[in-house]
Design a protein around this nucleic acid. Sequence first.
DNA 1: AATTGCATAATGTTCGCCATAAATGCAATC
DNA 2: GATTGCATTTATGGCGAACATTATGCAATT
Lengths: 333, 333
Amino acid sequence: MERELTTRAAPHAPAGMAAELAAAIAGEIGAGLMPPGTHLPAQLLADRFGVSRFPVNQALRLLAEQGVVRAEPRRGFFVAEKGRRTAEALAGQGGRDPLSRIYFAMAEDRVAGRLPDSVSEAALRERYGVSKGQLAQLLDRIAAEGWAERRPGYGWRFSSVLTTPDALEQTYRLRLAIEPAALLEPGYRLSPEIAAQCRAVEEHMLAGGIETASADALYERGVRYHEAIVGASGNPFMLDTLRRVNRIRRLLVYRSLTDRQRFYRQAREHLAILDLLEAGRNAEAAEALRAHLGAVVTSLRSMRGLLEASGGSPPIGRGATPLGSRSLQSRSR
Amino acid sequence: MERELTTRAAPHAPAGMAAELAAAIAGEIGAGLMPPGTHLPAQLLADRFGVSRFPVNQALRLLAEQGVVRAEPRRGFFVAEKGRRTAEALAGQGGRDPLSRIYFAMAEDRVAGRLPDSVSEAALRERYGVSKGQLAQLLDRIAAEGWAERRPGYGWRFSSVLTTPDALEQTYRLRLAIEPAALLEPGYRLSPEIAAQCRAVEEHMLAGGIETASADALYERGVRYHEAIVGASGNPFMLDTLRRVNRIRRLLVYRSLTDRQRFYRQAREHLAILDLLEAGRNAEAAEALRAHLGAVVTSLRSMRGLLEASGGSPPIGRGATPLGSRSLQSRSR
DNA sequence: AATTGCATAATGTTCGCCATAAATGCAATC
DNA sequence: GATTGCATTTATGGCGAACATTATGCAATT
């Protein structure tokens, strides 16, 4: 009973916000906006990110330590000569915060069947070595994503979503319903800037990026692309739905083997859809998007046989809205 | 500083869980399952609802006070002679818990423009007289529904979702994308029991229910119907999406005038779709559902002019996925 | 005139205790 | 033999104090 998996909230050197700001600022420097020598007034950055000057200064001090910016007493911060290169180097190592790490650990444990369907909070706290408050955060997040829910009395119940073999395919069928529809929303408008950004990313991938990027980065880019073109619909509910399903999909994709060849076709299709959207031919774009997503479903289905072999809990009743005799909504909190 | 709006968690006579159980049990008695005289073993009910006998006993004592069941010392509880009638009478007065009450108050305040776009937690606590923990619950719920989000530093920002004039129409367009697709899911299976329940409800409405039911009850029934037929798809992501959008829609519908005539056609269409589903003619059912929902969009659009008049904040940028330069995700909690 | 650097004030967050609710075991009773 | 009624044990929620973080005003400096 005394295991020591405890990832006990490592005492992160800088406060959370400052680190995020530092990463964001480094990102802009790395991207080439703000050439070396540029003065970085605290208020300007604060306004840009919607925070006060205080955390901005923390972030800048942090970046100064790393050599991305240069601090001049009483004059402020300036982009360092080698700032861009240093910033680019830093970009890769975006260490996840400790709580997210635990979150992913839980997801993996669940997918692998190492977590029972029903557990008490106390048991989870012991297993992952987190405080009450942290566990509450984790479980709230998980509940919001729909793979666990509070049981009527004490304890939590994990849904079978993550352990069902065709969950991944189901996420694609949801996207198949929403994404093409989003392109047909009245008032659809893809801003030229966003289109250009998407295009640049895809072209970068075709030009070798696919070979060098991490699997995680590849996934991330796909998500960004789809969320961008759906977001341009102006329908926040569709965008929200897509975001939500993507968060869960991330927990499922690891199962699917990453065949890098696949990404070349994907990138080309992404570009083709962008072309159509920029030409205002949304109906055709929607059709192309449907085909694009449909291809994945087909390929998933063909390799279903392979995955079926790996163990997991049986697909027990996923209780679909019992209408009457509603199963006691969990209490307030 | 000393206002007394404080809805300070009224000392609810029975604990939360017991009250919910009582309502659930009363519901079953009121529905006619369990005729008068039936013995109600605590363990049986406990198993049914997934809780222990303790709260079940509390609930039964509660129902005994109200005359729905009869307590016989050392023998247990039995459905009272007039149990069914008494239970039915009770069914209507499902008093919301105090926190939900505040939640709806916030939603109304927001829709009416009485809440600024950006507020601190302290301000909200004073306005609604809730404790820190309660406010956290409320805001988490609201954030999960997407109409507010934590700002980078301190404070919260309300999104424009609730104040945008076409939000309601957008929810319908999302449903239009999802619901027909759900009926076409492979493995779709509407269980006969649920179908029968839905049918009974709709027929009850046509047979006069529409005139007597409260507006709230009418809304609730519509939601139940749609969630039931989508739930039968077996795709939990689609069901989840529908549930989510329905929760928000509830906050928006009050704007739309409730023309009771409308419900007759609605009920008939619901029944027609059920017929098709039970006959396994899902493609036709999907088409009918599409028309059913499409009619609402059309009628909403026609009365848009009326609603435009009512004030509200201007539809400022709803920032659709800024792709690069991501706006600093709010911190952990 | 704008901006830095620091001090002060305002705002949230974490932690541990205690109150409360739920689960469980057991003897008495039907 | 199953079920009730109650006592005991276990689990969770709420609250406030101490702590950390962010916002903001102001004088000094460029």
